[in-house]
Design a protein around this nucleic acid. Structure first.
Length: 227
DNA sequence: CCCTGATTCGC
DNA sequence: GCGAATCAGG
């Protein structure tokens, strides 16, 4: 198998969606997990959290097979490529009480000061994480009240959320995790099963001989995201 | 042992 | 460019 454009495309998407190399490999078929990882690296895709610690530098390995004289000298890469980092702004003025919506766009016309590119990461809920050095002034003291789980929005107030799950209701996921309307089926569960009767029908299927197997039903998550 | 991703290196 | 072999952590 070769890396056609479509296959590369799928690799990219699945990789950035967080699929493991193995998953990607047997999804694509015809390639090994290693091939996928190798390709991902060659494509310059983001490194994933590796189980291997980046910490200590590995010394030469025992060169099991007769390794000819070290083929390549390795000049350590230019040490200090200027790391682009969010620069803490002087913040001379007391920040305004904060428009809660927190204009994510750096578009705010910084008056007269230099234009500083700010990099921000986006948290799981879609909120904008604060960069270092841009603490938002006084932290509102926590009210001495008991915290109560709240529905994030009226939108899903009547939907079955994670907090509503128990062993008697159907836990079949509807929509995509992380999205505002993600919820669970919520029907009465088939006793002894985590899903309602309909979803049990989808989740549990008799294994048929390969030859007359039907193509698999859509994944519970609605299949791969389309971005 | 299984899994994971990273790296190396012969092809 | 490709990917098997190898490494190393969980």
């Amino acid at each position: 198998m070769s890396w056609t454009d479509e296959r590369i495309e799928r690799l990219k998407k699945m990789w950035s969606d967080g699929a493991t190399a193995s998953q990607i490999a047997d999804e694509l078929g015809g390639v090994s997990r290693n091939a996928v990882i190798g390709k991902a690296h060659r494509l310059g895709l983001d490194a994933r959290p590796s189980p291997v610690k980046p910490g200590e530098e590995k010394e030469k390995k025992p060169a099991a097979a007769a390794a000819p004289a070290a083929p390549k000298a390795e000049p350590k890469p230019a040490p200090a490529a200027p790391v682009v980092e969010a620069q803490p702004e002087p913040a001379p003025q007391r920040p305004q009480p904060a428009p809660a919506a927190a204009a994510p766009a750096a578009a705010s016309p910084a008056p007269a000061t230099e234009t500083v590119v700010q990099y921000r990461s986006v948290g799981p809920g879609g909120f904008i994480r604060q960069g270092p050095g841009e603490q938002q002034a006084p932290i509102p003291p926590a009210p001495p009240r008991r915290l109560v789980p709240a529905k994030p929005s009226p939108e899903i107030a009547d939907k079955t959320s994670l907090l509503d799950l128990n062993d008697r209701i159907c836990k079949w996921p509807m929509g995509h995790p992380g999205e505002p309307d993600f919820h669970f089926c919520g029907q009465a569960a088939n006793p002894g099963f985590p899903y309602c009767v309909q979803h049990c029908g989808v989740a549990y299927q008799a294994q048929l001989p390969r030859r007359d197997r039907r193509p698999p039903p859509p994944l519970p998550f609605g299949g791969p995201r389309i971005r």
